[in-house]
Write a protein that binds this DNA or RNA. Sequence first.
RNA 1: UAUCUUGUAACUCAAUUGGUUAGAGUGUUUGAUUGCGAAUCAAAAAAUGUUGGUUCGAGUCCAGCCAAGAUAACCA
Length: 585
Amino acid sequence: MSAKQVAYNLIAGAVSELYGLKDAEIQISIPDNETHGDYSANTAFSIAKKLNRIPLEVAKEIAAEALAQNLSVEFGKVSYPIFEKIEACAPGFVNFTLSRDFLFHTLIGINTEENYGRMDFGSGKKIILEYSQPNTNKPQHVGHARNNFIGSSLAKILEYCGYDVVKANYVGDIGIHICKSMLMYMKYGDGQNPDKKPDHFVGDFYSMYEAEYEKNPEIEAEAQDLLRRWEAGEPEVRAVWEKMNSWVYDGWKKTYSDQKVDFDIWEYESEKVDIGKEMAMLALDKGLAEKDDTGAIIARLEAYGMPDKVLLRSDGTSVYSTKDLQLAKDSYDKYKFDKRLYVVDVRQSDYFRQLFKVLELLGFEWHNRLVHVAYGMVSLPEGKMSSRSGVVANADDVLDKLAMLEEAEVRNNIKSTGIIRETAQKIALAAFKYGILKVDTKQDIVFNYDQASKFEGNTGPYLLYTYARAGSVLEKAGFDPDSEKFTYAELPKDTKMQQKELSLASCLTHFPEYVEEAAVNYSPGRLANYTYEVAQKFNSFYGDVTILDAESVGARKFRLYLTRAAMSVLKESLALLGIEVVEKM
RNA sequence: UAUCUUGUAACUCAAUUGGUUAGAGUGUUUGAUUGCGAAUCAAAAAAUGUUGGUUCGAGUCCAGCCAAGAUAACCA
């Protein structure tokens, strides 16, 4: 049982005992101000209102009762109360402070238990997580990178909570936009092979199309014609399409590998050309859609406060939404998922509302398991990204540039140039990922290169530096927790714990709670903020007390354990963000 | 025009979903390496777009303004 649950139970017990209220609403939160303890309950306010009493008095009664009930847990042969203080605080909060014994034991747990912090509230539940979904007409830019980072981090976080996660990439490999780059290649490509990263090579033809279109809008008709020829299965067109797509896949292979992003299943739009017609017909039968004069089938959604949606073109072919209806159904039939998450940018919010509503109206009871995980747009200081205007930050280039900057920074204890390069790449990826993930998914991001290449303060490199620095201390101490067990008897009860030690230790115990919060809110950013807090607390502790030259043997040992626990938590939570630590930098 | 989202310090972001004194970083000013890694720490100045409302309590909820962005039937 977690300390938070214990706090909950204490409040529930006290409320039931004192006022006979069985189902009072109880919220346990972590106060942002440390002087208010580790957990806080605001239950006294609602009870005071109900009983027409003063909140502080009620809080005092609850605190006293909870303190009396304060549970003990068994640890080896010793038992101790989890909370050292439970006190009422004006204007009516009940604040809990963890006992030092509990902090000590948690530290030992972090150091010795294999999967410390791993949770199982998701076990037995399946989540289909769809993310990335790029189009094969150009290389990926920082907007795609944001999607990739959010998706892959969410997968790790949810798995950590016990969910069975299936990572799916649904590639847009056909459509008018693909034909645009194909058209230019067929006109001007001269049959040549890529002379650069192949997805960039393909992307150049797409940009070429955009430039040409400015001068001569009629080429759009040529692209349309190419799409028709593709649909008719013309061998010449198919051959170009396959060749160019395979170049793009080769390029992405490196992009994904550099970004440490991966998938369990890949699906291709070209393989789902005309699916979903039955869904459209079903919508017609159920009366939620109508056929208009032109023969198109249109879902009527105005009554639900959203625009109508075309489900089938007047020529009888599928549109994107037709396919998505079918894909959702197929996915459910196959996986019986508990959730299906679509990581897609916020522009498609209306689209997903429509899609989910249609599925609801069609009578699929699993419609409420579908979630659009929307994230804000990434733009540049110059404005929106568009290949037409040339305003674009390519994801590969950003990573390369960051790696070059890092390479110049990397200095200590690394002799081989190979390792320097490898380390620089890891730090660069940390800078990129953390820089993106620390911002709440809802917010738009203006991707500022100067900002991204900073290595100080609230950045990925700061976190890695903290880890590496802590590791150096342990190395210097010759500390090996496996051969150097720390027993309860050795806890330096006599030595007064320093404020910074307490603060760090308390922060570390909250790790699982933040992972859970990130999981239930589909928000890696929550975890990113927590990770930063851990690093800050460690650095503050590091600057405040001496570890190697501590005033007593017990204090030294305790601090070494604390250091190692901080490293474990940092490493684990960074891993959940998709960031690898480095031992030296 | 309608709908949705956003607006927090000079800049970039937090704020545990209505809680206790709104926290960080960058930049500015100042202090700390014969101290375990200064990519660090310690300190100073600086903020909730605006007007009302609900509440014991509002950055958070409601209404109206102001500003920015997104979306709006056969594109994806």
